[in-house]
Amino acid sequence: MSERDSGSSGRVKPAEATKEASPRAKTPAQAPFGAFVRKSGERAGGKAKANVENAGSEAAAMRAETAESWPADAVEVGAVVDAYGLKGWVKVAAHADAGHGGDALLSAKRWWLMKGRERQSAPSLQAKTHSDSVVALLGGVADRDAALALRGSRVYVSRSEFPALEADEFYWVDLLGLDVVNLAGVNLGKVADMIDNGAHSVLRIEYAAADKTGKPGTAERLIPFVGVFVKTVDQAAKQIIVDWEADY
């Protein structure tokens, strides 16, 4: 399904044997970033890589931001790991590959950067894939020293600037919080996280449950995001319908 904020973003599509994009979902506590999943198994593979040049499309300026000016729909999609070349380009480790949710880094007109408590934003003048990274020229970053100063910054993109998906694709970030209900109408809990196990994406669902002493708490169940189990994803109704028993 497709998605990584916000801390998060990625996309997905439940397929019998679909290779999905993977944000940094290596631990259940980690939010998905930019990856996607496919909803059914008709087609495998991702979208083609994008190459977007926005040079001259916006004023080339880096500006300071505050929590109040930060986009409400900001989704974390990567992190600046180094400078690239001598002319101010930055190198970003994307949380999902370009073509698999990382496309947002390539197409967004403005990047939002957070480093510690410091927030800033800059227009993306040029962005392209380079090996397994994304490199970009940001407005207001004129040389290598300025690019190096951005190392460690977490990169966010407004969800509204994510590339459009096909009907059977979903960004991970859009699946978080959805109710999961089985074919018998039993509520199995809410999607708390998405996990990539290498073969396909997995829904991590949390639900209310008592511990051995009867004390109220939460438990989790994992449901593979593949077509044989995931039947319907209804974002408008905030619900996913699955073929899965409550006692599995």
Rank of each mutant, 00 (worst) to 15 (best):
D5I: 11
D5R: 11
S9Y: 11
S9R: 11
S9D: 13
G10Q: 04
A21P: 00
S22T: 14
S22R: 03
A25C: 10
A25W: 08
P28K: 00
A29M: 09
A35P: 14
V37D: 02
R43W: 15
A44C: 14
G46K: 01
K47L: 05
K49E: 15
K49W: 09
A50I: 05
N54Q: 02
G56Y: 00
S57E: 09
A60H: 02
A61R: 04
A61Q: 06
M62P: 01
M62V: 03
R63I: 11
E68A: 15
S69P: 03
E76Q: 11
V77N: 06
A79E: 07
V81G: 00
G85P: 09
L86C: 06
G88M: 02
W89S: 10
K91R: 12
V92C: 03
V92I: 15
A98W: 00
A98T: 05
H100D: 15
H100N: 10
G101P: 11
L106Y: 14
A108D: 08
K109E: 08
K109F: 07
M114N: 14
M114D: 07
M114R: 15
K115E: 08
G116E: 00
G116F: 04
R119C: 09
R119W: 09
Q120F: 07
S124T: 13
L125K: 00
L125E: 14
Q126C: 13
S131W: 03
S133E: 05
V134S: 04
V135I: 12
L137A: 11
L138M: 09
G139A: 02
G140K: 01
G140P: 04
G140H: 01
V141Q: 06
A142S: 05
D143K: 00
D145L: 13
R154D: 07
S158G: 14
S158H: 03
R159Y: 04
R159Q: 10
E161V: 10
A164Y: 07
L165E: 14
W172R: 05
L178F: 02
L178K: 03
V180Q: 04
V181F: 09
N182F: 08
V186W: 06
L188V: 07
L188R: 02
V191R: 00
V191Y: 01
A192M: 10
D193C: 13
I195P: 07
I195C: 06
D196F: 02
N197Y: 10
G198T: 04
H200V: 08
I205V: 15
E206M: 14
A208F: 09
A209T: 13
D211L: 14
G214S: 04
K215G: 09
P224S: 12
F225S: 03
V226W: 12
G227N: 12
F229D: 10
V233S: 03
V233W: 00
D234G: 08
V242N: 01
W244F: 12
E245Y: 11
E245F: 04
